[in-house]
Simulated scan of single mutants.
Amino acid sequence: MRFISVAISLVLIACSSACLAAATCLEPVRPDRAFLEDAGFSPAEIRTEYRTYFTDVEDFLNCLNDVAARVRTEARTAAYDFDRALKELPQDRQSLSGSEDGFAPSTVPLQETGRLFLSQEDR
């Protein structure tokens, strides 16, 4: 029993750190030339600060692209699952024209556009 709880704990720790790393894109701080000069940085050190900043910007933008691609894939998968559930789950006559809460399944076909349409008004 103890082995199972330890195994579950390890899985949760691994998942939470991986999920946290995937969602944290740290925005770089732009160097301030005047501040760097006042702080006594040499011209070579100032150039190094700017080069580091541009490398950090590239890493940040790549991180955002990776997160956006992952979320887009998850949303697409959820949309297909939801569409399949709407088609497979039994519906009564009332839900064919819309349910009590006003929700009616969309008839918009799923497309691979890179955009997520949550309603027909978004088109």
Results as ranks from 00 to 15, higher is better:
4 I>E: 15
5 S>G: 11
7 A>P: 02
10 L>V: 11
10 L>Q: 03
10 L>A: 06
11 V>F: 15
11 V>H: 10
12 L>A: 05
13 I>H: 02
14 A>C: 04
17 S>G: 03
19 C>M: 09
19 C>K: 02
22 A>Y: 00
22 A>W: 02
23 A>P: 05
24 T>E: 14
24 T>R: 15
25 C>A: 11
26 L>M: 11
28 P>D: 03
29 V>M: 06
29 V>L: 08
31 P>M: 02
31 P>V: 02
32 D>C: 02
32 D>R: 00
35 F>I: 09
35 F>W: 05
35 F>M: 13
36 L>W: 03
38 D>Q: 08
41 F>V: 04
41 F>Q: 05
42 S>W: 01
44 A>T: 12
46 I>H: 00
47 R>F: 07
47 R>E: 14
48 T>V: 06
50 Y>R: 00
50 Y>Q: 02
51 R>C: 09
53 Y>W: 02
54 F>I: 14
57 V>H: 03
57 V>W: 04
58 E>N: 14
61 L>A: 05
61 L>N: 09
62 N>G: 13
62 N>A: 15
63 C>A: 04
63 C>L: 07
63 C>P: 03
65 N>A: 15
65 N>V: 13
65 N>H: 13
66 D>E: 10
66 D>A: 12
67 V>A: 11
67 V>H: 07
68 A>P: 00
69 A>P: 01
69 A>M: 11
71 V>Q: 12
72 R>G: 01
72 R>Y: 12
73 T>F: 13
73 T>L: 10
74 E>Q: 12
74 E>W: 14
76 R>P: 01
77 T>A: 14
77 T>K: 12
77 T>S: 09
78 A>Y: 09
83 D>I: 07
84 R>I: 11
85 A>W: 06
86 L>C: 07
87 K>F: 07
87 K>I: 04
88 E>D: 10
88 E>S: 09
88 E>L: 10
88 E>P: 02
89 L>R: 04
89 L>S: 08
90 P>L: 10
90 P>D: 13
91 Q>C: 05
91 Q>M: 06
94 Q>H: 08
98 G>S: 04
99 S>T: 13
99 S>A: 10
100 E>P: 01
101 D>R: 06
101 D>K: 08
102 G>R: 08
103 F>D: 11
104 A>E: 12
104 A>C: 14
104 A>G: 14
105 P>E: 01
105 P>Q: 01
108 V>P: 11
108 V>T: 15
109 P>A: 10
113 T>R: 03
114 G>N: 00
116 L>I: 12
116 L>D: 09
117 F>V: 01
118 L>F: 06
121 E>Y: 14
121 E>K: 14
121 E>H: 13
122 D>V: 05
122 D>F: 09
